[in-house]
Design a protein around this nucleic acid. Sequence first.
DNA 1: ATTACTTTGTGAAGGAATTCACAAGCCAAG
DNA 2: CTTGGCTTGTGAATTCCTTCACAAAGTAAT
Lengths: 211, 211
Amino acid sequence: MKHIAESTVRRLSLYLRFLEDFEQRGLATISSDELAARGGTTSAQVRKDLSFFGSFGKRGLGYAVPELAAKLRDILGLGREWHVIIIGAGKIGSALAQYHGFRQRGFNVVGIYDSDPAKVGKRVDGFTIRDLASIEKDVAKEEIDIAVLTVPAEAAQQVVTRIVKAGIGAVMNFAPVQLQVPDHIALKNVNMAMELEGLSFALANRTPLND
Amino acid sequence: MKHIAESTVRRLSLYLRFLEDFEQRGLATISSDELAARGGTTSAQVRKDLSFFGSFGKRGLGYAVPELAAKLRDILGLGREWHVIIIGAGKIGSALAQYHGFRQRGFNVVGIYDSDPAKVGKRVDGFTIRDLASIEKDVAKEEIDIAVLTVPAEAAQQVVTRIVKAGIGAVMNFAPVQLQVPDHIALKNVNMAMELEGLSFALANRTPLND
DNA sequence: ATTACTTTGTGAAGGAATTCACAAGCCAAG
DNA sequence: CTTGGCTTGTGAATTCCTTCACAAAGTAAT
């Protein structure tokens, strides 16, 4: 397939959210214009985004809501269950383990890990915290797709190297470091400090920020 | 000032992190090449990013670490204290209130709010949860710069409209909705579900994702 | 002081993403 | 079955961002 831009994928996610809302409200069709208004973009952008994957609309009419939603779920890989582990049972890790929004979308958290002996064996929202030592074995055996990394910055690269070797496919990194991973591994960084600095920059410079 | 791209600001944040690391290790100078290697970009990109704000380097030598760090802190608006409030004392809101990384960077959390009478008055990590009803008054009186929004999706737009009217400057939105704010308000969205769907897309399509 | 080497700062070139603009297709009404 | 009104899908134009490439400016050694 042709290369799809990061920004396009983000927007597809957004469109899906709106479609699910429309679906619930019983709307049958939606135009690119309405979708665009809702997402703060343009109708041309919506149509271009979708056009990378096929033509799903009817000229003169718009898009059938449930069909397009189904198509987007398919494109985004939400048609199946993904196996997720959380590594690091600190504050963020524990909060994420308790967040049930994952499951709804097919992100099935199957375990949470820590290296601290004082934490291993304790329970967090139904999960028994597992020992980090067993992670390679588990990743392979339980066919883990995605790791959510909430370990301290110093430990992050070492952990990610281990799980990549064990066969992980994707990593969502909360540690404030730039991780080195092979090209075929999907990596996303979530960094509160950086987002806040974006706001602080905008405030300090009175620059209109568009996001 | 000329318009600065979102991506540039993110990289400046990243460079600052590296510089602070180098600073701590006592390094006096750093080249754009080394900075680039650390951040997964190119030396030309580093120089171009910095060039929007001035010329801080010495040809043949590189950049003086503490000077460049100071300059970046200044550019990013980290030279002063920002007053931050958290709105929504649920799981995420409470976790953020307990996160002390904010304070270090000059983001001073001064209060946490909820509309649930059962929560108002309770304490979270040293903060007494305040009643959402008093938010307009407080935003104005305490000169709040940044609001971190962790309320349910249904309430988000209404709350943001109120605080914008009360004079807030920037909003970091955790609710999975696209908020409407005037142009002069800085807005950042943090959306776990969307990030995960990005990973899921990459896994489902084996598309190398670059982030 | 001259030479060899290094690294910045920046116009120009190239590439990527967004927006424009319009032909093509579909529906409904008469 | 024709006309009018809408909305899609997509090349072309445009805008935005990144990379190239090199003159200018510094260091160090002889």
